[in-house]
């Protein structure tokens, strides 16, 4: 392996000729941290990953790294990024829907310009799905993959309250159960919900009000692949979403994982490595073939 430092960024070249680049993009004069995995040979598809937020971002982070590393051998260049105001990106941004979508579009556009002959795929996880669906048509992506998407922010807000109840029990904070939920509600009302140390900013959540996923129709030129984590039947909300999009001419399909994910439960040192978690193994075993198929389709077409 060799490493080249390019200003604030860094590129590592692996033995198979592929590279992994990490650094910052600039959006509206602010910094967006990104990591891009690029295959050695022809790039037939690029994939932009729009992550979840808060504890779900941390919980899913390694899974996304693993997906990117897996896809590189199938000719897919994958980019992950941190929304401004979160993780390693610009520190003072107030993260809201508009900044998240702007970050996704900037990160995707840069990728699309770099690989103009490759087909574009956008993947959104949870709240990231609301961002991905908005960015995909702007980027001209032909496929949209959704990992257990949040269809409406109000539902997500209720999930946060439930998670507060449960997590406060499991993490041992004295205010458990209903008291824990009340505790979360109080901090949320004041502007920043506290979920076991993960921030759930009210401004961020409310910025998605009035923007349900169904309104971000990807259009007839884009195929949607929805991956549901856990449960034997497709969630009625997902069924409704796919039905509405299908009627508008979008090609839709769903994939059900048997393994559920404990949303909002970020990994702790007491958990097994991500590589060994059944839900991650299953999520990759379903998602890699979807993207692989898209890349192969493009390779045949060209």
């Amino acid at each position: 392996m060799s490493v080249v430092h390019d200003g604030s960024g860094s590129i590592r070249r692996l033995a198979d000729g592929s590279t992994e680049e990490a650094g910052w993009l600039e959006v509206d004069g602010e910094r967006v941290f990104q990591v891009t995995r690029v295959p050695a040979g022809e790039v037939t598809a690029w994939l932009l990953l729009c992550s979840a937020i808060g504890g779900e971002h941390d919980g899913g982070y390694r899974r996304q790294t693993m997906l990117a590393r897996e896809l590189v051998s199938h000719g897919v260049a994958t980019r992950r990024f941190h929304y401004r105001g979160t993780a390693n990106s610009h520190i003072h941004t107030t993260t809201v829907r508009d900044t998240m979508v702007a970050d996704a579009i900037a990160a995707g556009r840069d990728l699309a310009e770099r690989f103009p002959s490759a087909t574009g795929v956008v993947l959104g996880e949870r709240v990231g799905a609301l961002v991905a669906a908005e960015a995909a048509p702007v980027l001209g992506a032909r496929d949209l993959v959704l990992w257990h998407p949040v269809c409406e922010i109000e539902v997500f807000r209720r999930e946060l309250a439930r998670a507060a109840k449960l997590q406060k029990v499991t993490s041992g904070i004295e205010a458990a159960g209903d008291a824990g939920a009340a505790d979360f509600a109080a901090t949320y009302d004041e502007g920043e919900g506290d979920l076991i140390g993960f921030s759930a900013p009210r401004a961020l959540i409310e910025s998605f009000d009035g923007h349900p996923l169904v309104d971000s129709s990807p259009g007839a030129d884009c195929a949607v692949h929805l991956v549901q984590f856990g449960r034997k039947r497709l969630d009625p909300r997902f069924e409704k979403l796919l039905g509405a999009w299908g009627e508008s001419g979008t090609s839709v399909e769903s994939h059900l994982l048997t393994e559920p994910e404990l949303w909002w439960f970020a990994p702790g040192p007491w958990k097994r490595g991500e590589e060994l978690r059944p839900v991650t193994v299953e999520a990759l075993s379903v998602t890699v073939p979807i993207v692989q198929h898209i890349a192969a389709r493009k390779a045949v077409a060209s």
């Binding site: 808060g54 941390d58 982070y61 993780a87 390693n88 520190i91 140390g197 970020a266 990994p267 958990k271």
Partner: peptide, 20 residues
């Protein structure tokens, strides 16, 4: 870090804030 997963920014980007 104590091995909490996520990225180098730490839980809720605590290390990014400390670094700044």
């Amino acid at each position: 870090n104590g091995g909490h997963g996520g990225s180098s920014s730490g839980k809720n980007r605590i290390y990014t804030r400390m670094a700044a």
